[in-house]
Structure formats: structure tokens, C-alpha cells
Design a protein around this nucleic acid. Structure first.
Lengths: 199, 199
DNA sequence: GTCTATAGAAGGATAGAC
DNA sequence: GTCTATCCTTCTATAGAC
């Protein structure tokens, strides 16, 4: 597990490799990316990668884990700083959609390369995913309890909400006309509609 | 372009190869699938593939095109047989979500392997995608015009609606507890909420 | 910690017999 | 139209010099 301070300790090259890998995986997909490509994007020889990571899959794992952790931390921050379930839901889904636009590369790896992790690494990342889903489900449950939301299937609605935000990473590119700001606003509004929030 | 009758004419083996490829691509992803794997799933030797398809990418293209055509035709049927924009939207999003569950393999290839098509093939499939998006946008526009829906951003809302349905293919597996029936009902309801339909 | 060189394996596609 | 055999390329990962 690499904390930010451990990454600084580990030196620039490890981080540079992770960024190069993230670029390449997002652009081409995991299996279409070669370790040579990652190395050259990071300014290293093909062999240079293996000083810092034991395999290509290990690189995917570190990138995927960092992405999941970042997403989870973002959602925790957004949920905590909201005054009501409605505000929390706006912040969560708007913010998550925005994140998937602004960091669509990391988002793609998080959402679409999960299957390419090893069994052990998948299990570890699955824990982070549960934390992410739980944040949303808890806000929905609290909103229903307070009578702010009308939702009969909390898990199903949470899933649909996340689907909207996650899918942004699939279609967003830097030359998309919709700005991250606009995406955030749109998805925040749509989220409230989806839970039948009183307007 | 293979019409159904042309496929019958082309014989079982072509179709069997396409089904084998669809299975493998959906399970492993395009780049992680080997032509040997496809051949053996279809009961052929590795060389047998190339009698029917000129390359692995050609196989992906035929599967992807068939999937897009099937989805488009489904949406056209659903939209045409509805009596009102509300009914049409329920049918479209419920039915599209259901389709992505029942045919999650084809759905995954349609939605997540698009990038692996050649440039020419991507351009051709893009035409089918536009037709698919248009069906939904037209129902939204008609609903807004009639005053049944309250939507300020038609394209953006259409995109979010499709995201919900498309994302089903990412998380659905045959051992998912939610049945296609339940998914259809849930997403039909959510769609109406998302467009601010009067209840 | 980075390099050059290369081992060793696997994959896409073809040749040619049947 | 299917097979066996195989070419040729590319890839991950390692060996060993600096």
C-alpha cells in the first residue's frame, strides 16, 4: 500500500511510471498496452519498469487502487460536508460525475479494467468498491428515513445513480463540448429527480 | 453486411464462430481473447477461423455490428408500439436495460469494445449508434413538446438515460440476483422520474 | 537504478495437404 | 472447408554489464 508520503519516498520514477501506465491503459486498454509503451512514455528502457514494479499487472493494480482510493476519499469528503441528504446527494453524484470527466483516464481504469486484475488484487479492490457504494446507499437511506426521498429500492436506485456518473468516463474526452462544470450541475439535478426529492 | 438470410446462406459455421467470439470477447475482452480460443469454442482448428473471417478484428466487427443492429431494431420496435411519450420512454429504457441484462455479452461488446474496431469499422458502427441515440432524443423532444416531460437539456438527459441502461451490461452476470424483469420495471420507473414526468 | 541484449512463450495469420 | 504444421512477429520478463 503506497501512501502519498511513501510514494514521495519511493522517488519520482515510480510515480512517473504509474502516470505513464494510467495514460496508456486509459488510451488503449490494459491488454493493448505494452510494457515497452509504458516504459517509453516514462522515459525508461523496457527493462526499467521491472525495477519498480514486478509485473504489468502489478502496475495496473497500483493505478487501480490509487484511483479507487481517490474516488472513495472524494465521496467521503463530499458526503461529510453536506447539511442534508438532498445536499449530500447533489454533491455526491454531481461530484462523482465531474470526477469521471476531469479524471476520465483514471476513471476508465477504475471502472473498466477491474476485470484484468489478478484474483487477489480484485478481492482487495472490491473492498474499496464496497465502501464507495455504501456512501451513496447511506445517503439514500437517510433521505428516505427523513422523508426527503421517495425510493422503494435503495440498492437498485444507488446502482442506477452510480451508473450515470460512472458512464461519464466511457464517453468523456477532453474535446467533449460539455464542461465538467456543466456535467456536475446536470447530474446533481438528475440525481435529485431520480430519488423523488421534493422540489 | 450480413442479413439474417445471408447468414443462413453462409452456413452454420460462420454463425457459430460469431457466437463463440461473442462469448470470448465478453468474458475476456477483445485483446485478451486469442483466435485459438475462438476456434476451439467453435469446434474448429486455429486455421479454421480464417476461412470465414479475414481477421480477428473482422470477427469483432461482425459481432459488434450485429449487436448494434439488434439494439437499434429493438428500440425502434419499442418506440413505435407505444401510445404516448411516457409509454414510449418506459418501454425504451426498461427494454434497453433488460436487453443489456439478457444479452449482457453482446451488450458488453457493443458498449465496451467499440474502441477496438478499425477506423473504418468504427465509422460504420457510429452511424448505428447515432440512430440509437436519436430514438431516445426524439421521444424526449416529443414528450417535452406535449408538456408531459420537463427537461431543459434533451441531449444530456438522453445520455444519462442511456448510461443507466448501458451500464447494466457492466455489472450484470447470470448469477445477479436482480432478474431482467425486475431490472426492466425499475429502469422504466427511473426513466420517468428523470424526465420529470407527471405522475 | 538504468541500460543493452535476449531468453522464452504466445499470438495472428498463412501454406499446403486432404 | 477443414486440418496440421509453421512462419514471423511481438510481447513479458530476466540476465548481466555499468
Amino acid at each position: 500500500m503506497l501512501t502519498p508520503s511513501e510514494m514521495a519516498e519511493a522517488g519520482d520514477t515510480t510515480l512517473r511510471l504509474m502516470m505513464a501506465a494510467a495514460d496508456a491503459f486509459a488510451e488503449l486498454g490494459y491488454h493493448a498496452t505494452t510494457t515497452r509503451d509504458i516504459a517509453s512514455r516514462a522515459g525508461l528502457s523496457p527493462a526499467g519498469v521491472y525495477v519498480h514494479f514486478s509485473s504489468k499487472e502489478a502496475l495496473l493494480f497500483e493505478v487501480s487502487r490509487l484511483g479507487h482510493q481517490t474516488a472513495r476519499d472524494l465521496l467521503h469528503r463530499l458526503a461529510e460536508s453536506a447539511a442534508s441528504p438532498s445536499e449530500a446527494l447533489r454533491a455526491l453524484i454531481g461530484g462523482f460525475a465531474r470526477w469521471h470527466a476531469e479524471h476520465y483516464q483514471l476513471g476508465r481504469i477504475v471502472q473498466f479494467e477491474f476485470r484484468n486484475l489478478s484474483q487477489e488484487h480484485r478481492a482487495e479492490v472490491r473492498g474499496l468498491r464496497r465502501e464507495i457504494d455504501t456512501v451513496v446507499a447511506e445517503v439514500l437511506a437517510e433521505g428516505v428515513r427523513r422523508g426527503d426521498f421517495v425510493v422503494d429500492d435503495i440498492r437498485g436506485t444507488a446502482l442506477a445513480l452510480m451508473s450515470m456518473a460512472v458512464d461519464v468516463a466511457r464517453w468523456y474526452t477532453p474535446d467533449t463540448r460539455r464542461t465538467p462544470d456543466a456535467i456536475e450541475a446536470t447530474y446533481a439535478d438528475l440525481a435529485l429527480r431520480l430519488v423523488g426529492a421534493a422540489r
